[in-house]
Amino acid sequence: MDRHQASPAVTVREVGAEVARPLLARVDTFDTTGGVDTVASMTAIGRCFVIAHDGRDVGAYVLQRQGNECFVLAAQGGAEFDLTAFLSVVVEAHAQGLRSIAFQTRRPGLIRKAKRYGYYIAGRAPEGVVMRKDLQ
């Protein structure tokens, strides 16, 4: 079978903060907290995961349970597939049994894209918005 026709092998693994931080380095550029939260602080308090595509690390994300909600503290990556679509499914699996998923962003394109996956603007962040998807 031609390699281009084969399905890519995409995996997710939980990692320590030191492994996730380099893959999340650009997240600080899109800060929505006025400098309060940084990649270093978010990876220190959340659960960190790395996404690999055909054995190559292509992204990372950090989750934290906040009450009955799964909050995506940070996410970043670059892959040959739609990471937003992929993460919408993966994070929903992480959040099974919880009321909702949320994240903050100031990126207009991500806001538009997230709305296609069932998210809505639920509030304002210091420098952006809070996006939420109700699960129950």
Rank of each mutant, 00 (worst) to 15 (best):
M1F: 07
D2I: 10
R3A: 12
Q5K: 11
A6W: 00
P8V: 14
P8L: 12
A9I: 14
A9Q: 12
A9S: 12
V10N: 00
T11Q: 12
E14F: 04
V15L: 11
E18T: 14
E18D: 15
V19M: 05
A20W: 01
A20E: 03
L24P: 02
R26K: 13
D31Q: 01
G34S: 05
G34P: 08
G35S: 08
V36F: 13
T38P: 04
V39L: 02
A40T: 13
S41G: 10
S41D: 05
T43F: 06
I45H: 09
I45M: 14
I45V: 15
R47F: 01
R47G: 01
C48N: 15
V50A: 07
I51Y: 00
I51V: 15
H53W: 13
D54I: 06
D54Q: 12
G55L: 09
G55F: 08
G55S: 11
D57A: 15
V58S: 08
V58T: 05
G59H: 00
A60D: 05
A60W: 08
A60E: 06
V62S: 07
V62L: 10
V62Y: 07
L63E: 12
L63P: 00
Q66G: 04
G67F: 11
G67Q: 06
G67P: 04
N68F: 01
E69D: 13
F71E: 03
F71N: 04
V72N: 03
V72Q: 03
A74T: 03
A75L: 09
G78C: 08
A79K: 00
E80L: 11
D82I: 04
F86D: 05
S88N: 15
V89G: 03
E92P: 03
A93E: 13
A93K: 14
H94F: 13
A95W: 03
Q96G: 11
G97H: 11
G97V: 08
R99C: 07
R99D: 15
I101S: 06
A102W: 04
F103N: 01
Q104C: 12
T105M: 07
R106W: 00
R107P: 01
P108W: 11
P108K: 10
G109H: 10
L110E: 05
L110K: 01
K113M: 03
A114M: 14
K115H: 10
R116M: 12
G118D: 06
G118V: 03
G118C: 02
Y120A: 12
A122R: 08
G123Y: 08
A125G: 04
P126R: 13
E127P: 00
G128M: 05
G128C: 06
V130K: 04
R132D: 02
R132M: 11
D134A: 11
D134K: 10
D134R: 13
L135N: 05
Q136V: 14
Q136R: 14
